[in-house]
Amino acid sequence: MTDAGSPAGDVYDWYQRGLQLLTNRDPAAAATLLTRALQAEPGSRSLLEALGRAQYDAGRFREAIGTFSELASCNPADDYAQFGLGLAASRAGDLDLAAEHLALAVAMRPDRAHYARALRGVRARRTAESA
């Protein structure tokens, strides 16, 4: 940290360190650093995606929903944003929101088998809960 309380380096350095923290399985620290980077560069799609991943991996699913929602609003055709939003919503227990966004991700990228598996899982959970 610098004297002003900011991490050393610039926003790109923070982004790179955040990704490294994710790789090293420290998503909570990554989320903290990436949040700081996003405050310095609001609306950065790369930062939003990395932050959403960090929040999800840290079990902060409601925060991840917000971050992936913002990412999807920047580009509704971003299949990964839709997928991340769907996964976070699923883990947060909002199966209707999850199914909606996972279906969008599958429609955009039918070649991604893990998108389709996630959608099938959410639909099965909804069916089981309504039975």
Rank of each mutant, 00 (worst) to 15 (best):
A124M: 05
D78Q: 01
Y80I: 15
L87Q: 10
T35D: 00
L119T: 15
S73D: 13
P42H: 13
P76R: 15
R126S: 03
A4S: 15
P42Y: 03
A30H: 04
F83S: 04
L71W: 02
A107F: 00
A116Q: 12
A88D: 07
A92H: 07
A81T: 04
R25E: 05
R25W: 01
I65H: 05
V11A: 12
D57Y: 03
G84D: 10
A64S: 11
L33G: 14
M108Y: 02
R60I: 02
A37G: 02
T67C: 06
L38R: 09
G5Y: 00
T127H: 10
E129L: 11
A40Q: 11
L95A: 13
E70W: 00
L33D: 14
L34F: 11
S73Q: 14
Q20Y: 08
A103S: 13
R125N: 06
T127N: 07
A98W: 01
L34R: 10
A58W: 01
E63D: 12
E70D: 11
T23Q: 14
L33T: 12
Y80T: 14
T32V: 10
L21S: 05
A54L: 07
L102C: 09
H101T: 00
D94H: 04
D96H: 06
G66T: 06
A40G: 13
R117D: 15
S73R: 15
D111N: 05
A31Q: 10
Q39Y: 09
A29M: 05
L22N: 14
R91G: 00
G86P: 05
R17G: 08
A99S: 13
A29Q: 06
L51C: 08
D57Q: 11
L38H: 09
G52M: 11
V122R: 06
P27S: 03
L38G: 07
P110M: 09
E49Y: 07
G18L: 09
P110L: 10
A124N: 11
S6R: 10
L97H: 02
R62V: 14
R91Y: 09
D111K: 03
D96I: 06
R91E: 12
Y12G: 04
A54P: 01
L19T: 02
Q16L: 15
A103I: 01
E49W: 09
L38W: 04
E100N: 12
A50W: 07
R91F: 07
E49K: 12
R117I: 00
E129H: 13
R36C: 10
R109W: 08
A118C: 08
D57A: 13
R117L: 10
L22K: 03
G9Y: 07
M108F: 12
A77L: 14
D79H: 14
F61Q: 06
F68H: 11
Y80P: 09
A107K: 09
A28T: 13
S44C: 07
E49F: 09
G59Q: 03
G86A: 09
E41Q: 15
E63T: 02
M1W: 04
G93Q: 08
L21D: 03
L95V: 09
A107N: 12
G9V: 08
C74L: 10
E70S: 12
P42F: 10
S73A: 15
A99Y: 04
P76S: 08
A50C: 05
D94L: 04
L33C: 11
D26T: 13
L104G: 00
L33Y: 02
R126I: 03
T67I: 10
A77W: 15
P27T: 02
